[in-house]
Amino acid sequence: MTEKTWQYEEYEVFLRRSHQEPQVHVGSLLAPSPDVALILARENFMRRDPAVSIWVVPSKQVTEATGESGFLSREMDRKYREVAGYTENGRLWRMFKEKAITLEEIVAYVEGRNQESKRERRAERG
């Protein structure tokens, strides 16, 4: 083993690829200090992919649990908190002569209405 009094530290690297996304772990590197780690992270992890933000965090600061310990186990039925647990809504709405709607439809509608109102405003002005 090399004998030495100095050493580089491990840093975990996180990138945010766009403002709509969370900071995502992309890898780790060795560096003598946080400022150098940041300089190195830029070229080691975003040579191709642009990013809007980059973090380096000393690996020592990470507290981890993995699935192996059982800590992350989700074995029992959790349908009650998932969309898939409510498929009967479609059938129930039909009894009221209505269709079930999804969140995606509402989002699309909200975005569509914005466009519509712009059109209306333009029409009013014109």
């Binding site: 090399t2 030495k4 890898g27 080691n44 040579r47």
Partner: peptide
């Protein structure tokens, strides 16, 4: 750019080995 990528791949892979070899007391230097 290509040779740089190769060095970068070396870096990524070394980090994987470093984590595996840490319990054996081995570092990047070694």
């Amino acid at each position: 750019a290509k040779v740089q990528d190769e060095m970068g791949h070396g870096q990524l892979l070394l980090r994987v080995v470093e984590d595996l070899a840490a319990p054996l007391g081995k570092t990047r230097e070694d």
